[in-house]
Structure formats: structure tokens, C-alpha cells
Design a binder for these strands. Sequence first.
RNA 1: GACCCCGUGGUCAAGUGGUUAAGACAUCGCCCUUUCACGGCGGUAACAGGGGUUCGAAUCCCCUCGGGGUCACCA
Length: 519
Amino acid sequence: MNKLVKSYIIKQNVTENQMKWIKGEVSMGNVRVRFAPSPTGYLHIGGARTALFNWLYAKHNNGEMILRIEDTDLERLKEDSVSQIISSMKWLGITWDEGPEVGGDYGPYFQSQRLDNYREACDRLLAEGKAYYCYCTPEELEANREAARKAGLPPRYSGRCRQLTAEEVERFNAEGRKPVVRFKVPTEGVTVVNDIIRGEVTFDNTILDDFVIMKSNGIPTYNFAAVVDDHAMGMTHIIRAEEHLSNTPKQILIYKALGYDIPQFAHVPMILAPDRSKLSKRHGATSVEEFREQGYLPQAIVNYLILLGWSPEGDNEIITLEQAVKEFSLEKVNKSAAIYDTTKLTWLNGVYMRDLPLDEVVKHALPFYIKEGLIPEGYSVQDIQRVKEVAEKVREREKTLVDLAKASSYFFRFDYTYEEKGVNKYFKKDGAADILRKGIGALKAVYEFTIENTEEAYRKLIEETGVKSGDLFHPTRLAISGRTTGPGLFDIMVLIGKEETIKRMEKAVEYIEKANFAV
RNA sequence: GACCCCGUGGUCAAGUGGUUAAGACAUCGCCCUUUCACGGCGGUAACAGGGGUUCGAAUCCCCUCGGGGUCACCA
């Protein structure tokens, strides 16, 4: 048992069962965690990492992962966002046991469909005097905040409506004011958040003001809805980003007021942009969808995300989801924010590009071949086969699917221009055309156009003529691919075929002689 | 501004009082090689600063500084 767990036991009144559970004396099958995004845009990598950690924790403990959509802010709601988030999660391989599309016993899983629950809980608080109606207008509130700011005081709500007289209430109602409901925060004492990752964090209740739990339109605020739902849905662990740590005391106060058991919290560190600021659109790719479009594989992204804030045992950083599930623990999640660095992601992507089964890579690569115009949108089995043959050789040396498709183009068409650097270096060399002609001759004599046979023909030619191998290989490569880099020369030849290879080489001879480089 | 969290190389990240302070990515050099990549070998590079505590601090405490978060009828 580690220190954290020990201190937890001391600090909280854990039940005997919980104690057994912590000690590992009972099998853990009751862990329930959730990922609760608000549908205001794409799933960004921070959210994806949070979802992933929840998922890993659930799987590690044989528990359940719930997906809940927090769509209580009508104004920021974005069309399609839910389906975007869902598709990104699916693409990454993060599943959920309950939630949209799969249902479950604790639904509905959209907060907009659970309004009755919040109303009910709110009424109870109201009836018990733990919350009250507030008739202050946004303008009044803003004016107060402004005044406080000027006075150098924290912008807190005054508590003015805590005890309104019946006449005042009547007057406000007559004015047509629609009240909000505020939670009565204790005016003294402290609230302690016991966080698995951060330990014990203490907040003074006096720094909290009477925050709104129900808006005037009858919709709950985040801090209230989250608590009501997390309890109703039986959440045992709340794993979320650190930005919520400061909200947690408010939520704990609500848990207590409602008489709910308090779940365990784990606030994972934030993921920051390269300039150390919070992730936003101006930082380039930040959403899972964008990374996908840039040619990253889900396996690479997931692996990268696992490494941000958590590290596996040992030196090996290439880790599958299965291994991660086996090893994952919240205690090992570190506390400091991480800056995401696409360089390492790109490296990982390269690793997965060459290590994943070819079919898997091709599956993800197809859209990029289409985009590059190498295969038609309504591609055929033959097209897939061709992509496979090419990708098998090209994937070894490329790091993203975009690069893979780009580096594959000359296998599909002969419309390239020769790389200038290569022309200068190889085509302009004395006797280049002549050597190419000899190469053509040698290749023409090859019956079965295989890697071994073509290579043998070339080796023999080198031996017979005494030309340096580079003087033959380099111009040939440039002639048949237009480039100075790529897969093995004979791999290329065989892939494009004898006829095409010779045709391209003849074209190159023609090009060299027409350009008349020899000055 | 108040409150909260965090601070090991450029980035990720081991490390829980005694280590030559791991490893990965990036970077540089060499090797392999028909090119590029892969791979192999090696190099540069870090405990934010200052005080304590201790025989001994990256590890414990305090202060400073720096970064981040929260203070909404957003989530």
C-alpha cells in the first residue's frame, strides 16, 4: 500500500468494504468512471488523453466506462460536435460501456435530457434552506464585480439575496425577473479535496461565494449537473483535467449538501501547447481530427498520449493498449503539465507505419492515396492491391500517411519532373546518357523481371564496363522515379515493371541529350 | 489581484535522503549502404534560484521567481 492510499484511509471514513477493496482483498469490479465532454467542438488531444486515462483505469480494474454528453450550454453548442467526438473516440479505439449509441441502465446520457433530475435535487436544496433564489440581474452583478475589482477585492457575490423579504420577492416577480438558484456556501471552515494524483488539497470556504447552480432558464450549471449526474450514475472515480481542481471544492460542498457519497478524484495534468499556453486553434493541429488529416495513425496518437503524464515500466516506450491496460495506475500519473511535441508523435507514427500489419496501414492510407489522385474514390480490389505493393516498400522510410502517399506517386504515374539537385549531380555528369543506354540494354536482356535478376544484370554490367556502381544506380533512380531517394532501386524497377522501366529510362536519355548538358 | 496546482536537458520522462542523475524524441558525429529511411556506436545537454533540516539532499521545510489553472446565469 502506498503512502497516498494510507493517507486516504486516515483522512476519510472509509467503509470496511472500501478498505478491503483498497487492500486488494476483494476483486474490483465496481469501478465506474466517465468521460464527460461538452459538445462545443472537436475532440482535442487533451480531451482524448483524459478519455484514454479513464478508459485505461476502467479496463485495468474491470470497471465500466461511461460517456456522458454535457450539453447544458445552449449557446456554445455546436452542430455535429457530438458525432465528431464520438467518431474521434472510435477511431482512437476508446470505447464506452454506457452512453450515446450503446445505452445503459443509467441513461439518458445527455444532460439536456436529464433536466428533471437537476430540478428535483435543486428543489430539495431549496426546501432544506441550502440554496436560495437570487434575483440580481446580470447588470447588477457585473457592476458589483467591477466595483470589487476597482477596490482590489476578489469579485465575489455579495450574498444579497440570501434573505429577501416576501415583499421584495413579490416585487421582483412582479417586475418579471427570472431568478437563478444559488448554493449557500458555508461562511467558515475548509473543504478538502482528496486527490489520488495530487494528494490532499485544502480550500478555505470563505474564498468561495454563493455560486449559481440553476440558471434562470431552468438549466443547471456545470458544477451542479456534474455532481447530480456523477452520483446518479454511480461514478466511483472522477478522472478529469486539472483545470477542474479548483471547481472541486464547490462540488464537494454540493455532494455533502445532497447527502451523497463523495467519489474519489484524480486530476490529471494539462496538456499545453508548445508555447506553454492552453491549447487553442492558433497552435495548429490540436484536435484528433486534424492529426488524422495530417496522416497520423490512431495507434501512434494513442501511444503518444499514454506517454504524456504517465510512463510504463522499463525503457520501452512503444506500448500497446493491452499492455497499458495491464500496467496503468493513477498513482503513477505525474503532476506537472506536459507540452505536446509533434516531433515525437511523428517518430512514433513512423514506428507504427512500418511495424503494424500492412493491411492495417493500407486501410488508413487509402484516403490519402485518393487525395493524392493516385487511386480513384471508387477504388477497386486491384487498386488496393497496388497500394499494398507500393506501400510495403515505401512505408519503411516515411513517417506520415501524407508522406507515404506523396512518396508513392511515381509508382502510379509517369508525369514527374526530375529533381533539380539530381539532374545537376547525375544527369549532367559526362557519359550519363551513355551509361543509361547500357543499363537499358542490360535490362532488356532480363527475361524474368525480378529483383534478383535485375540486380544481377546491373552488377554484371558494372563488372564488364568498369563503371562505378553509383554512376549507374543514381541516374537510373532519377530516371525511373524522378527522385534521388526512395526504396531499393530494383524494388522500384520490379514494381513499375520492365516495359515501364525501360520507357522511363529512354525518356531520360532523350531528356539528357536534348538538354545538351555537356558544355 | 485572490486562491489552487506545478517546476529534472529543447521536449516527454525515470528518480520517494547516499545514483557516474536512467531512458526516449530531437540534435551532432561515425558506421552500415545504390539513395533515403531503418539499424548500430558515440557526443552535446538537466535537478529554476536562495535559505534551512541532515553526516549527506533532485528527493524534506521555508522564501523568491517562473509557468499553468480557477474565480461566469461556460464547461
